[in-house]
């Protein structure tokens, strides 16, 4: 990983990490995979801090561990470039623009909340979000569902949430155990397939 960095000094690298993830967060709306191309541009092509294969690792890892995808990427790259301080700098970079924008919006909402136009606009936006999520369920489904095992899990998770109001935390934990068990008994899937898809949107 110690390829030719332009600045050898860790403090410089930490600042650059902060600033780059700040820009990435400020410029992407909707989060997640929208920022992968920007990360590639900044860290692979311009700064040459990491290689194209490292990007493949980043994409695989950020989806395989829990958390916000953009923040996971910031921690991963930050840690590799400058250790824990680098990871922290990356996260603070990702969080700051979102934080400033949202606190401003929240303060404005307490001012103007309750205006009928605003309420109507929000019903509109909720309908729109509903449609966007439905479409993303459809396109994710095409990538994730490969047979009865996946269909079974999708339907059980849906039914447990909607009809039985099970806490989603338990759904995730149970699904992880079922996946492990499926892998253990060699029922299907995990060995070989899985991973490399770039879900969402």
């Amino acid at each position: 990983m110690d390829t030719e960095h332009t600045d050898n000094n860790t403090r410089n690298r930490v600042l650059v990490l902060f600033w780059t993830f700040f820009k990435i967060s400020a410029l992407t709306v909707g989060g997640g995979f929208a920022m992968i191309p920007i990360i590639e541009e900044e860290f692979v092509r311009r700064k040459k801090w990491i290689t194209a294969e490292d990007i493949a690792d980043v994409i695989a890892i950020v989806q395989s561990v829990p958390g916000v995808i953009a923040a996971n990427a910031a921690v991963f790259i930050g840690y590799r470039m400058a250790g824990f301080v680098g990871a922290l700098a990356g996260v603070i970079g990702v969080v700051t623009p979102a934080f400033v924008v949202i606190v401003t919006v929240a303060a404005c909402m307490t001012q103007w909340g309750g205006h009928p136009w605003l309420d109507h606009a929000f019903i509109g936006v909720r309908s729109g979000v509903c449609a966007l999520i439905a479409l993303s369920v459809y396109s994710m489904g095409k990538k994730i569902i490969k047979g009865r095992f996946e269909w079974g899990l999708v339907v059980s998770a849906f039914v447990s949430l909607v009809l039985f109001r099970v806490n989603p935390v338990w759904v995730i934990a149970a699904a992880a155990l079922l996946g492990l068990a499926g892998c253990w008994w060699g029922i299907r899937v995990c060995c070989g397939s899985a991973t490399e898809e770039g879900e969402e949107k």
Partner: peptide
């Protein structure tokens, strides 16, 4: 394999959960 196995279970369940979010 353990990570792959867990994710093989978690991914479809998350999909079902997001479908619930649509509702």
């Amino acid at each position: 394999l353990a990570v792959k196995g867990m994710l093989a279970g978690i991914r479809p369940a998350v999909l079902g959960m997001i479908a619930a979010a649509v509702l």
